[in-house]
Simulated scan of single mutants.
Amino acid sequence: MGRTPAWESAYRDYFVARQRSLMRTAYAVLGSWPAAEDAVQTAFTQLYVHWPRIQPGAVDTYARRTVVHACFRMAKQRGRETATGRLPDRPVPGPEGGLERLDLMDALAGLSPRDRAVVALRFLDDLPVAEVARVLDLPEGTVKSRTARALDRLHVVLAPPQTTEGNTHDH
């Protein structure tokens, strides 16, 4: 039996430390835990192959970029399927006119995979615009405009419906 490479311990430590975070990002982009698991497994396989050549300060960027690009490939293969992989379960308003609740993942499903990635990296991973730009290989201005556009769409979808009942004024 051969010896394990010296760098493999660092790789294993990185895997343990970052797997959950990368899974969360992949899930936000794909809307499916099994698909997210596949994307992260693909990314960690590539990370293992290239680990000895990756600069220590660039590991996070490389790992995120690899996960996000795996997500993009998977989303493209899945075509125009709904990102959640399930039909939304909408409650029927009760007699008191209760509002329907929309799940955040259902709202994210309305965004393109690239916009979901921008939102996930900016707000789940709490990355600055410059780092998101590096991960996605986009200009910073594009990251800012995609973020604004995605947040506008999410706001429209997630905002509570405006009702006119009870807002009539007697003059």
Rank of each mutant, 00 (worst) to 15 (best):
M1S: 15
R3V: 11
T4K: 12
T4E: 08
P5L: 07
S9G: 09
A10D: 13
A10P: 04
A10I: 07
Y14R: 02
V16S: 06
V16W: 04
A17R: 15
A17W: 07
A17E: 14
A17L: 13
Q19W: 12
S21L: 14
M23Y: 09
T25R: 00
L30R: 02
G31T: 05
P34G: 08
A35C: 08
A36G: 13
A39K: 01
V40C: 05
A43L: 02
V49T: 12
V49I: 14
V49G: 05
W51N: 01
P52Q: 10
P52A: 03
I54F: 10
I54T: 15
P56A: 06
G57L: 10
A58Q: 13
V59R: 09
D60N: 12
T61R: 05
Y62W: 11
A63W: 04
R64T: 14
R65F: 09
T66F: 03
V68A: 01
A70C: 05
F72K: 01
M74T: 15
R80N: 10
T82A: 07
T84F: 10
T84M: 02
L87T: 14
L87K: 08
P88D: 03
P88H: 02
P91A: 09
P93D: 00
G94N: 07
P95F: 06
P95A: 05
E96H: 08
G98I: 04
L99K: 03
L99F: 06
E100W: 00
L102F: 13
L104F: 15
L104V: 13
D106R: 06
A107R: 07
A107P: 15
L111M: 04
R116Y: 06
V119F: 05
L121C: 01
D125R: 01
D126G: 07
L127A: 08
L127Q: 06
P128T: 10
V129H: 05
A130I: 01
V132W: 03
L136K: 04
E140T: 12
E140G: 09
G141C: 03
T142N: 05
T142L: 04
K144V: 14
R146A: 04
T147N: 11
A148H: 09
R149G: 05
R153M: 14
V156M: 08
V156A: 10
V156H: 13
V157Q: 07
L158N: 03
P160E: 02
T164C: 01
T168V: 14
D170P: 14
H171A: 13
